[in-house]
Nucleic acid binder design. Structure first.
Length: 311
DNA sequence: CACCATGTTCCTTG
DNA sequence: CCAAGGAACATGGT
């Protein structure tokens, strides 16, 4: 369940429920997901401490720890990987099949389950490094995005997923944002004109905000529940109105474009991941501007305003 | 059985 | 130095 929106919703849900709770003990069922190798080290740093608050940075979840009001030497950082999930449940009852770590809080327990075990738990003291700006922060402006995208000829879609460029964007929302912005995923990162950067900046935020709002509408009990994932692909949607996919292009290969209605959603592979787009709504911004510089011949194409986030 | 999957990291090749 | 491609991690769903 991992991209920024899913993690954000989970964090907003957990924060008020975990504040002030004391960690009695920690059970580790799969050693491989504990980063500081010895699981004992994690236990020693966590047991007996209290959770001050839960926050998110990129796709990481941070459990801030304190001992009697004093900040603990390290906090716990969790990453959900591809299939990681977290549940706050009663301590009674059988442990879930794919439980990887269980934090005993007394009458309740915080269980981290991860079928594929790509996620991980780690201890961290300072702030997390190697991460780009948070797309939902006020500091995330077209100017900031432009700087982040400049200096690389890599396809913009691939650059967007680089956590050092923008924090939290994953494969699904990268396609969604590019589609909304009307930018081709193949556009060289540094070849985007000012208008494209502005639309993309706005679209990234719009797509993430929308997903978070939708997620906040879920009944509390369903957050973190495998059956309540945001993503409900439409596979096999041969004829009728199968699925309730709220995605504009992701996983819609072969379906008519939800924007222009006449184009058909295409799928290409970039950096080993699938990208979905409509070549009619997301044209290849003309032939790439060559690196050779001589005279200002680049014209800013006045593309229509960004489409409002309506339906 | 074959292929696909929300992520990250490492290695090789051009 | 950069970009691209592939493999690896381990498992479930279609």
């Amino acid at each position: 369940m991992p991209e920024l929106p899913e993690v954000e919703v989970l964090v907003r849900h957990l924060d008020p429920l975990l504040r002030g709770r004391r960690i009695r003990s920690v059970d580790v069922f799969k050693d491989r997901i504990i980063r500081p190798h010895p699981a004992s080290e994690l236990r020693r740093a966590v047991e007996g401490r209290e959770i001050l608050q839960v926050t998110r940075r990129a796709k990481f979840i941070r459990f801030h720890l304190v001992s009697g009001g004093v900040p603990a030497p390290a906090d716990v950082i969790a990453h959900l990987g591809m299939t990681g999930r977290i549940h706050l449940e009663s301590s009674r009852g059988p442990m879930r099949k794919h439980a990887v770590v269980s934090v005993n809080l007394g009458t309740e327990r915080l269980v981290f389950e991860d079928a594929r075990q790509f996620g991980h738990f780690r201890l961290a003291s300072g702030s997390l490094g190697g991460l780009g700006p948070e797309p939902l922060d006020g500091i995330f402006t077209p100017s900031v995005l432009g700087d982040a995208l400049a200096g690389s000829r890599q396809a913009v879609k691939i650059r967007m997923m680089d956590q050092a460029v923008i924090a939290g964007i994953g494969n699904i929302y990268a396609s969604e944002a590019l589609f909304l912005a009307g930018v081709s995923p193949r556009t060289p990162s540094s070849g985007l004109d000012a208008g494209g950067v502005a639309r993309l900046c706005h679209s990234i935020r719009a797509v993430l905000d929308e997903a978070i709002e939708r997620g906040m509408l879920m009944e509390p009990g369903r957050i973190g529940d495998p059956e309540a994932l945001f993503h409900r692909p439409i596979h096999g949607g041969t004829g009728g109105s199968v699925g309730l996919s709220h995605f504009r292009v992701y996983d819609r290969e072969g379906h008519s474009c939800t924007q222009c209605r006449s184009g058909v959603v295409e799928r290409i592979v970039q950096a080993g991941r699938c990208t979905y787009f409509c070549s009619r709504c997301q044209p290849e911004a003309g032939r790439v501007a060559e690196p050779r510089v001589s005279s200002p011949r680049v014209r800013i194409m006045p593309r229509s305003v960004v489409r409002p986030p309506s339906d």
